[in-house]
Amino acid sequence: MKKTPLLVGLAGAVVLLASGWFAYSTLSTPAGPTHAFTLYDPEDPREVAGTADDVFHGEVVRHSGRRTVAGIPSELYEVEVDRTFKGHLRGTVTVTLSTGSPVLASGTSYVFTTAAWGTPDDGHAVLADVQPSVTTSDTARGVSEHWQWAVAHQVDVMGENP
């Protein structure tokens, strides 16, 4: 019995198995951090304010879980709205923040720039590439003035009126 066809078949099976494993591991595992494509400059508070549905100051009540919204794994936070710079949010709202972003601490105050998901029950998503700004009693006035100015001078990158 000739061993050549058996060895060729075995070698072919090994190549198929190795290439299948390589394709699976390459396509199923993210290569690294992902980046969102934004039309606004996340470093320009006027463009961020112009893009956001809501800009508000609030205190994180608690981390309330995780979920995937529109294919984006997100952390959920219950936030008590203290002051609104843009929009009409009141009371406690659910804010979603992409998984992998810095964790928001319960009892800590932040300024949030968010866009509403499809329905009020879906909550409000922090804008891509914009982290909530921490505020303390020492910085609250300056942060408030900063965002009041940004909202008053917002830039609409889509060319629509705010």
Results as ranks from 00 to 15, higher is better:
M1C: 00
K2H: 06
K3H: 00
P5F: 11
L6D: 13
L7Q: 03
V8C: 03
V8M: 10
V8E: 03
A11P: 08
G12D: 01
G12C: 10
V15A: 13
A18N: 07
S19N: 12
G20E: 02
F22E: 02
A23G: 12
A23S: 02
P30V: 00
F37E: 10
T38Y: 09
D41H: 13
A49Q: 00
A49C: 04
A49M: 01
G50H: 00
G50K: 08
T51W: 04
A52L: 14
E59I: 05
V60H: 09
R62V: 04
R62S: 15
R62L: 14
S64M: 15
S64L: 14
G65P: 03
R67Q: 14
A70V: 04
G71D: 13
E80D: 08
E80Y: 07
D82C: 02
H88W: 00
L89V: 01
T92H: 06
V93S: 00
V93A: 09
L97C: 04
S101C: 09
P102N: 10
P102M: 08
T108H: 07
S109F: 01
V111Y: 12
V111G: 06
V111F: 11
T113W: 09
A116N: 11
A116F: 09
W117C: 10
G118W: 15
T119Q: 09
D122K: 15
G123Q: 03
H124N: 07
L127G: 09
V130D: 04
S133F: 12
V134I: 10
T136V: 07
T136N: 12
R141W: 15
G142K: 14
G142M: 15
S144W: 13
H146F: 15
H146K: 03
Q148Y: 05
W149F: 01
W149D: 03
A150L: 09
V151T: 07
V155K: 06
M158L: 07
G159C: 07
G159T: 02
